[in-house]
Write a protein that binds this DNA or RNA. Structure first.
Lengths: 225, 225
DNA sequence: GCTTGACAAATACCGTATACTTGTCAAGTA
DNA sequence: TACTTGACAAGTATACGGTATTTGTCAAGC
């Protein structure tokens, strides 16, 4: 069973090990190699997904396309579902980088930050052919449940990362405010992707920013409640 | 094809006809009978859904359970999908009545109105065994897509009704504000049902109210801009 | 740590045949 | 006019035994 339910992308993990063993940067190669391997597997899957739905792609194919044995794949990800889950998160990370960047580019104007962040996400998501494919296949076995019914992992992960980004840019913000904002932002973003508004991405983003704006401004400004 | 794409529940339709023909309340029986028939069919479907997933229920069964011929069913709803769509909306209407009531009970305090409305929806939805069944069946052919991927009709309908309720209770609110609030409220509500927060419904509702609060207060108060 | 080879169990595919369901007729009844 | 009955083609679900593939997990070897 291997019990690999950890979904977090934690590149800071070796730090603890290093602190425990003594010599600084004790095993960065190990971790780096592991990360490289995982990326190769994700990239291979992405390549395959470009002309075939997820249900029709086998683990053996992914391993072969990455130039790796099937067992190495299973050693990294416990099961097919685990791989799918983490793959979606890896893809989402690309979007989230844009979002974080948008936030940090507008630290002086929180409302614009929200608007820019949502717009960055929406254009990145709608332009990505992979997202279209994800939303297209409606049947079971596809990856669509991972952003709708079983989207808890994605939601938790993205929301936590947004939380960090906000606390980073606006130190005055309260924990609860940041969490609520992250959660809501992600829920709305997922909703907009799975059933878009009739607006353009920019208009949608501005609507969301209008709505969240008053709350964000208050949260960013006032330190004490 | 019968082209019955109209999803609105419009009991005001005969009004126009009456105004055109002259005699007031010209054909209320016709409409009333139609509505009764539709309700019977919906109720029959609900009964059947209590022990069988949607995919395993045939149109013939629904008709038989309602004591009506299959063709009458097809005369009312163009297709199986149409029926499912309108059925979901009919069920949603029960929840929406609670929501509207909650809003009108707190017209003096918009934030409490949002909180009460969301909580009313969440408890009604989580208590309803039908909702649990809807969310349970993950496969294709179920009704779950109607509140996730293909939820546009439900979203538009609910959002429009909320819009009316808000304009009703807070005449000062701007059209755009009411629309945006309705849209966002429904998107969040659907998100909370399909993947609940770890909180209780009450806590979830209060979080949502906290977040929408500043916007709502501003929208309700200021008539200009 | 990765690879190769092998394994049981579960699942997918296949071709065929049968049964059922959907959506739409037309004719009949009150 | 609105509903019912009976019938229809087209599409889809089911059953079926048999075969092939896939998943998830071994152990042996470099």
């Amino acid at each position: 069973m291997r019990a690999s339910a950890s979904v977090t992308t934690d590149p800071q993990a070796p730090a603890a090990a290093a602190a425990a063993t003594g010599p600084a940067a004790a095993t960065p190669y190990r971790e780096a190699a592991r990360e490289l391997l995982r990326d190769s597997l994700f990239d291979a899957a992405r390549r395959l997904l470009e002309d075939r739905p997820w249900a029709q792609i086998t683990m053996a194919e992914i391993a072969r396309a990455a130039g790796v044995s099937r067992q190495t794949l299973y050693a990294q990800f416990g099961s097919r579902d685990d791989f799918a889950q983490q793959f979606v998160i890896r893809e989402g990370a690309r979007f989230l980088e844009d979002v974080e960047q948008a936030i940090h580019a507008h630290l002086d104007d929180p409302v614009r930050a929200v608007s820019a962040a949502m717009e960055a996400f929406l254009v990145a998501a709608t332009e990505d052919p992979l997202v279209s494919l994800l939303l297209a296949d409606d049947g079971t076995g596809g990856m669509l449940p991972l952003v709708t019914t079983r989207s808890r992992p994605v939601l938790d992960w993205a929301s936590a990362r947004l939380c960090v980004a906000m606390r980073d840019g606006w130190p005055a913000i309260a924990d609860a405010d940041a969490e609520l904002l992250g959660d809501t932002f992600v829920r709305l973003a997922l909703s907009y992707v799975t059933m878009p508004r009739l607006d353009s991405p920019r208009a949608t983003a501005e609507a969301a920013a209008d709505l969240l704006g008053p709350y964000v401004e208050r949260a960013v400004a006032s330190a004490g409640s």
